[in-house]
């Protein structure tokens, strides 16, 4: 059975280890490698939402932490204001990082 169609196409021989690779190469050649699978398919809308929430979340967290400290220590506006200030700094940091990630030619980055 297996021997019979060996000469025609060898893709159906389950014992042939390379058959999938060869098929893959053939498909890739037929497609002309126009289809590059990469996760860099952010849409503009997605980017916008990403940046907006990155900016907003940090002041909220830091502000809430400041408010908690104030409630505990009884120094109401002090740590809330400091917290919001630090939160904005962290928000800007988040946005800068997110922008850097979105850059198309990041090439695995220079960190590490």
């Amino acid at each position: 059975m297996v021997m019979a169609d060996k000469d025609q196409t060898s893709y159906e021989d389950p014992n042939d280890e390379d058959r999938l690779d060869r098929l893959g190469q053939k498909i890739a050649k037929a497609r002309g490698e126009k289809h590059e699978t990469g996760p860099e398919t952010h849409s503009t809308l997605g980017k916008g939402w990403r940046l907006a929430t990155e900016l907003v979340a940090a002041p909220m967290v830091a502000g809430a932490m400041g408010l908690g400290l104030d409630r505990w220590l009884g120094t109401l506006p002090l740590f809330l204001l400091i917290g919001i200030g630090i939160g904005f700094a962290a928000g800007m940091l988040n946005v800068t990082r997110a922008m850097k990630e979105m850059e198309p030619d990041k090439g695995d980055d220079d960190d590490e």
């Binding site: 939402w49 929430t53 990155e54 962290a90 928000g91 940091l93 988040n94």
Partner: peptide, 21 residues
């Protein structure tokens, strides 16, 4: 401190983004 706040804000921003959308 800024880095820690930035780190802590991650689940919030994840949550808000999906929810708001």
């Amino acid at each position: 401190i800024i880095e820690i706040v930035s780190f802590l804000s991650r689940p919030i921003s994840l949550g808000i983004r999906l929810f708001a959308n």
